[in-house]
Amino acid sequence: MDDLKVKAYKSILFQALLDIRQLSGSIVWDEQPRAEEGIQQSLTTNVVQQTQEIFHISNAYHNLGDALINDLADFNEENFWNQIDHLSSTFASFKHYKLLYEQYMMKKK
């Protein structure tokens, strides 16, 4: 696979790791439990949402790191992009992966 494509995939993997870091950091550091029941329920719902987002990002990207070790040999791009499409349709805040990839690939032209 060409170097630009490998770099583009590395870039979106790095972005996914940054997103996971931000989401998990917000669970660990920002969400201080409060005694009021309504606020506690809201925080619990938010933590569940963030945990689901972390899971889906991790699930979509779990094979990419391994594939990058081998310069994407035997990498199933169609399956990967199907997972990314599912991720971005489930969580609107994650549409940037495909856009970031496309920006890298535009440098080729």
Rank of each mutant, 00 (worst) to 15 (best):
Q50M: 15
H62I: 12
L17Y: 10
Q103M: 10
A92I: 12
M106C: 01
Y61K: 02
L23M: 10
H56D: 14
G25D: 15
Q40P: 00
T45K: 13
S42H: 09
F75G: 02
F55M: 06
M105V: 06
I69V: 15
M105E: 12
N79R: 11
D3N: 11
M105P: 06
K7Q: 10
A73D: 11
D30P: 00
T51K: 13
K109L: 10
Q22N: 13
W29P: 00
L18P: 00
Q32K: 15
Q41V: 14
D2Y: 02
F94V: 04
N76A: 07
D2P: 02
D3A: 09
L17M: 13
R21C: 08
E36V: 10
Q40V: 02
D71Y: 11
S89W: 02
L100F: 05
S89C: 01
D85G: 02
T51H: 08
K109H: 03
F55H: 14
Y61T: 01
Y9L: 03
N79L: 14
S88F: 02
E77H: 10
L4C: 00
I20E: 10
I57R: 03
S58R: 11
F91I: 06
T51W: 05
E53A: 13
H56L: 15
Q22F: 11
Q15L: 13
Q83G: 02
Q41A: 15
A16T: 03
G38M: 08
W29E: 13
E78C: 01
E53Y: 04
F94R: 09
L17C: 03
T44P: 00
S42R: 14
Y97L: 04
N59T: 03
Q41E: 13
Y61Q: 04
S42Y: 11
R34C: 08
K95H: 10
I84N: 04
S93I: 09
S93Q: 14
M106F: 05
E31D: 15
A73I: 11
H62Y: 11
S26F: 12
N76F: 01
K10I: 00
A8H: 02
Y9P: 00
N46C: 05
Q103P: 00
T51G: 13
Q32M: 11
G25W: 12
G25S: 15
L13F: 05
P33W: 13
I57K: 04
L87M: 05
E77N: 08
S58F: 06
I27Q: 09
L13Y: 06
P33A: 12
Q40Y: 10
P33L: 13
Q15C: 01
Y101S: 03
F91M: 05
E53K: 15
N46S: 15
R34G: 06
